[in-house]
Deep mutational scan, measured.
Amino acid sequence: MGFKLLSKLLVYLTASIMAIASPLAFSVDSSGEYPTVSEIPVGEVRLYQIADGVWSHIATQSFDGAVYPSNGLIVRDGDELLLIDTAWGAKNTAALLAEIEKQIGLPVTRAVSTHFHDDRVGGVDVLRAAGVATYASPSTRRLAEVEGNEIPTHSLEGLSSSGDAVRFGPVELFYPGAAHSTDNLIVYVPSASVLYGGCAIYELSRTSAGNVADADLAEWPTSIERIQQHYPEAQFVIPGHGLPGGLDLLKHTTNVVKAHTNRSVVE
């Protein structure tokens, strides 16, 4: 069995187990497998329904001669939608809004960016022009300005110390501490036991640490421990890039980060 097929099978099995364990909360999309990078042309966006009122959005972007996937989250909030992270750029984010209108038909009224990198804030200006209120932590807003990236308009308070959590509509926002970046936030959907790890969490097929220019490698494993301790009931975990899975993604990420750190020390 090929690795790609095995990865998709694991996603399907995880979703099936969740649907059985929580039949009222989960209505997993039966329309197909989780979209992969090879299936999404740059400039297009796919939506994948995880649970009743919960979707991931998947886009792709060219970077350094390669094409990478990027995940975000959409959560229903009454007759409105909360968006977590842009679709990595203005063109993708405009396509995301169009796809949401086509498939869901509810307005996106608020959006949260989970850290300051372009795959999370690139497209904020498109959201703002569409009347979406954009939010991020003060740290993310400051770092985005320093980096020359787009800056969300509103500040999220109460997320300055490791372990801080605040309720934001249908989700809980959690600051686990520094990891992929010093400002990275985690998003949890309690009604569906869905954990969105953003770039602080890796997919299972990833074996290298990737972009760690703004990471705190020493603190990252401790931050992941905080996530595990705060959300032990999480059933569906979405990484910032690639295929979702279960809580095993947290341990896998820790292993990859520690291996990278150990290699760096040896070198």
Rank of each mutant, 00 (worst) to 15 (best):
Met1Asp: 04
Leu5Asp: 15
Ser7Lys: 10
Ile20Lys: 15
Pro23Asp: 11
Leu24Trp: 07
Ala25Trp: 11
Val28Gln: 10
Asp29Lys: 10
Glu33Val: 10
Tyr34Arg: 08
Ile40Phe: 08
Val45Cys: 04
Tyr48Ala: 13
Gln49Trp: 11
Ile50Ala: 05
Ile50His: 07
Trp55His: 04
Trp55Phe: 05
Ser56Cys: 15
His57Ile: 00
Thr60Phe: 08
Thr60Met: 10
Ala66Tyr: 15
Tyr68Glu: 08
Tyr68Gln: 06
Pro69Tyr: 13
Ser70Cys: 03
Leu73Ser: 01
Ile74Leu: 09
Val75Leu: 05
Gly78Phe: 07
Leu83Phe: 03
Ala87Pro: 04
Ala87Arg: 00
Trp88Gly: 02
Trp88Asn: 06
Ala90Gly: 14
Thr93Leu: 00
Ala94Gly: 11
Ala95Gln: 12
Leu97Gly: 00
Ile100Ser: 03
Glu101Thr: 11
Glu101Pro: 06
Lys102Pro: 06
Leu106Cys: 06
Ser113Phe: 07
His115Gly: 00
Phe116Tyr: 10
Phe116Ser: 07
Val124Cys: 03
Asp125Trp: 06
Asp125Ile: 05
Leu127His: 04
Ala133Trp: 08
Ala133Thr: 13
Ser137Leu: 14
Ser137Phe: 01
Arg142Phe: 12
Leu143Gly: 04
Ala144Gln: 03
Glu145Arg: 14
Glu145Cys: 07
Glu145Met: 14
Gly148Leu: 06
Glu150Ser: 04
His154Leu: 11
Glu157Ser: 11
Glu157Trp: 12
Gly158Ile: 03
Ser160Val: 12
Arg167Gln: 13
Pro170Gln: 06
Leu173Asp: 01
Leu173Ile: 14
Phe174Arg: 01
Pro176Ala: 05
Gly177Leu: 04
His180Gln: 05
Thr182Pro: 13
Thr182Asn: 12
Asp183Thr: 00
Asp183Ser: 01
Asp183Val: 02
Asp183Cys: 01
Asp183Tyr: 04
Asn184Met: 01
Leu185Gln: 01
Ile186Pro: 00
Val187Gln: 00
Val187Thr: 04
Tyr188Phe: 10
Val189Glu: 04
Ser191Pro: 07
Ala192Ser: 10
Ser193Glu: 14
Val194Gly: 01
Gly197Arg: 03
Gly197Gln: 04
Leu204Thr: 09
Ser205Val: 08
Thr207Leu: 13
Ser208Arg: 10
Ala209Ser: 10
Ala213Trp: 07
Ala213Gly: 11
Leu217Met: 12
Thr222Cys: 06
Ile227Met: 12
His230Trp: 07
Tyr231Val: 04
Ala234Gln: 01
Val237Trp: 03
Pro239Arg: 02
Pro239Phe: 03
Gly240Arg: 04
Gly242Trp: 05
Leu243Val: 15
Leu243Ile: 15
Gly246Ser: 11
Asp248Glu: 14
Leu249Ala: 01
Leu250Gln: 03
His252Gln: 04
His252Cys: 01
Thr253Arg: 02
Thr253Val: 02
Thr254Asn: 14
Asn255Asp: 13
His260Ile: 09
Glu267Trp: 09
